[in-house]
Design a protein around this nucleic acid. Structure first.
Lengths: 166, 166
DNA sequence: CCAATTGCAGATAAATTTTATCCATGATAG
DNA sequence: CTATCATGGATAAAATTTATCTGCAATTGG
């Protein structure tokens, strides 16, 4: 029941991009370097985000990634589902239909398994909670909660990166 | 982000045991057979549940497992955490402290990462939801929602199992 | 048009986790 | 004292996650 670290990287990348001016983009390599994670693997995640319409790509020299929507239109759930896929995390194997207690005709099982229902309900509240949090909410909090020196350092590094390529 | 099928088995086993009279116990083999799952592997889960105080074991001939607490005192969360461990499903790797935007002294990072906080909050509502559902709630619903023929068939099989060993 | 940069898709491989099995041991009812 | 049953440890197979590489397509700037 572990959430893969790719999710963590993907959210960090998206929220970084959300804070940049709309004309700026960063390459996959920049994003990997910025976060200290392996580039080729992160690239996979970025490609997925882009094919799901969360990121936009600009190819060619001075290309890279930028956010495809307004930060207020992208929730953490969007990112999580893009990377992990939207399948439920609980698979009901219908084991109630398997043992000696089971009835022959599976048509007898109209209502979903009670246990599965409970697990799915819990997953729903989890997803709803993640859907409430938009990238714009994170940006807002960053302004008030994150050390300004850190913000400056990050911004400088990005500025230098985008400048030096001109 | 998949929930292992062991969880599903464990919950089914516990809710089956919850419906039996207090003096009755079922062996690991019975439980495996009843649910149509591999015995040696299920045994591991039953052992874990028992070492976590959710199940009681009776060793020796005519031994087996029974519920260690009243059904109203065991929640789905108890079972899930017993099997999966209680670690959070989201690991914060503190990647904000890794890239070129990071500050040198990690003491500067007093508040938890905003992204991790959001993920943990979502996990909390998930857990709270699962903790609301007790085995007694499932039993209650089983009475009204499950086909009586199925209940009878299961009960008969169990009765035959527990009888034939006398 | 050319050359360099960048994302894309697919194949592949290493590492880790999940799933599964087996066996020796200890407890206990009959 | 014997058959039954849980326990704990070791082991192995299977699946998934993590990671890398390579050739290709698109695009920009010269």
């Amino acid at each position: 029941m572990k959430i893969s670290s790719t999710i963590e990287w993907a959210i960090h990348c998206c929220s970084l991009l959300a804070g940049l001016p709309p004309e700026v983009n960063l390459t996959g390599k920049d994003l990997a370097e910025y976060h200290g994670v392996p580039h080729p693997y992160l690239a996979k995640a970025l490609q997925t985000l882009s094919s799901d319409g969360i990121l936009m790509t600009v190819s060619g020299p001075r290309g890279g990634y930028k956010l495809a929507k307004k930060p207020s239109k992208v929730s953490l759930l969007d990112i999580v589902l893009s990377i992990e896929g939207s399948d439920s995390c609980f698979d009901c194997d219908e084991i109630r239909q398997k043992g000696p207690g089971a009835l022959e005709r599976s048509a007898s099982y109209k209502k979903p398994c009670l246990i599965a229902s409970a697990m799915w309900k819990a997953e729903k509240v989890w997803r709803d909670e993640l859907d409430k949090v938009k990238l714009s909410d994170l940006l807002e909090k960053v302004k008030t909660e994150v050390d300004p020196r850190q913000l400056k350092k990050g911004a400088d590094w990005i500025a230098q990166r985008t400048q030096s390529k001109k």
